[in-house]
Design a binder for these strands. Structure first.
Lengths: 335, 335
DNA sequence: CAGGAACTCTAGAACGTTCTAGTCCGTGGC
DNA sequence: GCCACGGACTAGAACGTTCTAGAGTTCCTG
């Protein structure tokens, strides 16, 4: 007997063995009303003995509604893994399954979405998608689409995201409270959400009357981007800097420390995302945390409402972030 | 028109619109022989216009063979994300799809595997599974199973993994070359592969006649585990330490540095996995790298062979690791 | 004691594909 | 002019489920 050789048992096999009809076995397996306790018991026993596993393909094909949510995530972004954890929990609570499709350095978003389309999931949840709004809208024409971590100004697409503008306001406020004025911002370049965080930065600087000190350096999502920005900043270092995300913050921290600046003595740094590594004691990064539980719960809930056909009014749900103060921020150096 | 409301077009719709039979459309869509160039053209045109998407559920249900590989990965382990990237590439090359199922802090392996079982994938690839061999064997009785990053002594399960014994031999050799004798090892506790790495450590120490200096501290896979081990080691610090993985190495580095020891002046540290963060300049960890491309290519190839029913002889494929020397290792301090 | 109602169960259609076994037609050899 | 052949196409069964409609029971109710 070679592995995987034997045919998998079907409802018909169980039915034959238990001496009942296929339909009845189906009823028992679905835990639907219409079978006596005795038969239920017997059928379940037979199913267990034959090691029966329902075939979700056939099940979904027939029943039409698929209780299946497609999720597109980026393998490169640690923060999205945290989101995955939350999404599984939320979907589980709602009785939905998740089917994942990853974006990798050599597998783009279109491919990832295409894979899910063939799986006939009932709705799609996209984590920080980079594709143009027009494509998102086209997709939303075929099935409910919930976008996370990105604003999309289109009436057919649902959005659940963190208030990034507010996030950077929190970061800047914190630094101002500590006495900083020369606060720079390293943005995310062409990354999703970069524009909003940059806007939040400018807004806060203006609110504090610090427009004259505003200074934005082009960054990106990776460590190298942060390191590059650090080298640029070192020519004329500010006393504080807000970063697009934790990863680029880590890159900046390294270059700056090697250059002999004390953290936070000479330079205060605020990250974004509260990635697991930002908690590492020797990074100990002050950062803006996104509320993963709320974000994922609401995203799944929204997808489910759409599937049910509920007429939802507000397309966009925006969750406030919160500041996590750790060791990379401190009082501004006295001049 | 509400999003996702309209029925998705089927083969029948395309057939009706193009004025041909359903079977013919199927032939065209599959690019199978049996249709004239002219009709082919026309059908494709109609399909494109209707935005037809094949239903993989129905397709797989009917055709039996599923060209679908199930992958179980842990959302907590950054190294497994790197593996995912490679697996997608490899599967793509072989014309297979991947369907992912994640293990999260609140979603265990059994659940993850169960999800894939219902998806009727043709084979399963498990990344560092923790479940007992008996369960793996039972699973392998129903479909081909390829286990990565873990040895499994069972004739029904295929294994593709790194030679962890050799990995730790490389690490210890490197340290011995630098003049170290008091080399400790912080293991992975109950983690998969911990036993092999520990064994490699003991083997190398013995080979160098350093058995008397051998010292193993219980660790784990996370940063806290490394930090805990560090505190234990500081009571009587060695001059070098090999760690179970990069994450625990990062934890150890932090505690040790705060305690005032210089790296690598007072203590040399070797990690394992070459995780992306170990390349971060301010960690700059000497580590043992696993050959991701080879591992993933072979794992997919092996799964495909099994699906085809090929009688493969050697169940276990072991890939040599290589040492990446960075900044956390240096000459032993002169006494 | 007729007539439901409630319950348990079953037959058979349906889902959207692929596959098998054809039909139909034109062409070419004899 | 007959027959075999091959290419283009089609009808209908099959895959493993769920669903609809209904067939038997038993049991209550007036």
């Amino acid at each position: 007997m070679r592995a995987g050789e034997q045919r998998r048992p079907t409802l018909a096999d169980v039915a034959a063995e238990a001496g009942v009809s296929v339909a009845l076995v189906s009823i028992v397996m679905r835990d639907a009303p219409g079978a006596s306790a005795a038969t239920r018991q017997r059928v379940l026993e037979v199913a267990r003995r034959l090691d029966y596993q329902p075939d979700s393909r056939a099940r979904l094909l027939r029943s039409g509604e698929s209780r299946l949510l497609g999720v597109v995530f980026g393998v490169q972004h640690p923060f999205q893994h945290d989101l995955l954890t939350g999404l599984y929990d939320a979907a589980d609570k709602q009785g939905y399954e998740l089917t994942l499709s990853a974006v990798t350095p050599r597998r783009d978003e279109r491919t990832a979405i295409g894979g899910l389309l063939q799986d006939r999931c009932a709705a799609m949840i996209l984590l920080g998608p980079q594709i143009p709004v027009a494509e998102l809208a086209a997709l939303a024409g075929r099935m409910p689409v919930v976008v996370m971590m990105r604003g999309v100004r289109h009436k057919a697409v649902d959005v659940v995201r963190t208030d990034d503008v507010r996030g950077l306001n929190l970061a800047v406020d914190h630094l101002v409270t500590l006495g900083h004025t020369r606060i720079a911002h390293v943005d995310g370049g062409r990354m999703i959400a970069s524009a909003e965080r940059r806007q939040g930065y400018h807004e806060a600087m203006r609110r504090h009357g610090l427009e004259a000190y505003a200074r934005v350096v082009v960054g990106g999502f990776g460590e190298e981007d942060g390191a590059r920005a650090a080298r640029e900043l070192l020519a004329d270092p500010p006393t504080a800097v807000t970063m697009f995300n934790d990863l680029s913050a880590a890159g900046l921290l390294d270059v700056v420390q090697r250059h002999g600046l004390a953290i936070p003595g000479d330079l205060s740094v605020v990250g974004y995302d509260d990635s697991s590594f930002s908690r590492l004691a020797h990074i100990d990064l002050t950062t803006v945390a996104q509320d993963i539980d709320t974000l994922t719960t609401l995203a799944v809930a929204r997808a489910v409402e759409r599937i049910a056909g509920g007429g939802v009014t507000n397309r966009e749900i925006v969750i406030p972030p919160r500041l996590i103060i750790r060791g990379t921020t401190g009082s501004a150096p006295t001049p």
